[in-house]
């Protein structure tokens, strides 16, 4: 079970079972709907911000534990964060998750989201972890 535990850390399972930011109540125009065509996972995500600070990231969706935990951790991470931080954070996250285990997320910058570090060793799971982050990028472009 050790390899499994490395990927599915308690924090991941907790976030997937009790997700943060789950439920779309905002009418913020900054929103996106993304689908992972391989497995049918999907997410609808909206960013509430005032132009300088992210107030909240709300989302609804369905998918595997990794994709759900990733969305939840993203929502936790960005709450009340300067809007200018978002783009570099997404870039760093993408680089680490796609690194096949060679780059780890920085705990000081990513907090609990470093629980997703295990994903980068599993090419088949990278898309699961990225889904919410891709939606976030798209939402801020809209």
């Amino acid at each position: 079970m050790s390899d499994l535990r490395h990927l599915y850390q308690e924090l991941i399972l907790d976030h997937s079972r009790s997700p943060h930011g789950f439920g779309l109540s905002t009418d913020s125009p900054h929103r996106s709907h993304q689908v992972n065509p391989t497995c049918g996972d999907e997410i609808a995500l909206a960013v509430v911000h005032d132009g300088t600070t992210v107030e909240s990231v709300q989302w609804e969706g369905q998918g595997c534990a990794i994709s759900q935990a990733s969305a939840s951790l993203l929502s936790t991470l960005l709450e009340r964060r300067p809007l200018a931080d978002v783009e570099p954070l997404v870039a760093e996250f993408r680089e680490a998750i796609q690194s096949r285990g060679t780059i780890e997320l920085d705990e000081e910058r990513f907090g609990d989201a470093i629980a997703l570090n295990g994903v980068s060793k599993y090419v088949a799971r990278v898309k699961c972890a990225m889904l919410a982050w891709v939606a976030l990028e798209d939402a801020l472009d809209s």
Binding site: Y8, C39, C64, A65, I66, R125, C128
Partner: peptide, 13 residues
Amino acid sequence: GVHAHDVGHVLDE
């Protein structure tokens, strides 16, 4: 309560 992808991952291991 468990997504198919997670089941598949456990089996793949």
